[in-house]
């Protein structure tokens, strides 16, 4: 590959990798959700209008008022939108061609972002595939997998 160097000739380069490791305090809502994942349970939170927000937020997405009532939702759900990842990048949950999707879990009224191992379309049902070792992170959900043969 040739690079346009603006007529300057050879450009000298050196690699630079920046990482900032942190341990962040997750608080009573996000913390409860992540702790639930460790136990293979998924929690949402009831919004001001009664709808269940999952993953849960500390504040109502519309009104901004503080929320407190945690609600357990299902580990299966429906794909509400999807896109394909053809060339996965470092850090992404799956190494090969996969689907990035928004999934509305049963009992929830909002969608969560995650990956699906396989091809799906909007309206398809998927279920959580848990990671073998769970640490209280969103990646405790290793991926979603399609539920074939109808639900």
């Amino acid at each position: 590959m040739t690079t346009d160097t603006g007529g300057v000739g050879e450009i000298l380069e050196a690699p630079l990798v920046i990482e900032y490791p942190f341990n962040r305090t997750t608080g009573p809502v996000i913390g409860a959700f992540l702790t639930g994942l460790r136990e293979q349970r998924v929690l949402g939170i009831r919004g001001a209008d009664g709808r269940v927000v999952c993953p849960p937020t500390e504040y109502d997405p519309q009104t901004g008022e503080p929320l407190t009532e945690m609600v357990e939702v299902g580990t299966e759900g429906v794909v509400t939108s999807w896109s394909t990842v053809t060339t996965p990048r470092d850090g992404q949950p799956l190494p090969g061609h996969h689907t990035l999707a928004l999934v509305r879990l049963d009992g929830a009224d909002t969608a969560m972002l995650h990956v699906v191992d396989g091809h799906v379309a909007t309206g398809d049902r998927v279920r959580i595939r848990w990671a073998d070792e769970r640490q209280g992170l969103i990646t405790d959900i290793a991926a979603f997998e399609p539920i074939r043969g109808g639900a």
Binding site: P55, T84, L113
Partner: peptide
């Protein structure tokens, strides 16, 4: 940093959802 960031979704695939 809790729900979306750890999945490292790239900007093009995210736009694909929309």
């Amino acid at each position: 940093p809790y729900y979306y960031g750890p999945l490292w979704p790239d900007s093009v695939a995210l736009a694909g959802l929309q």
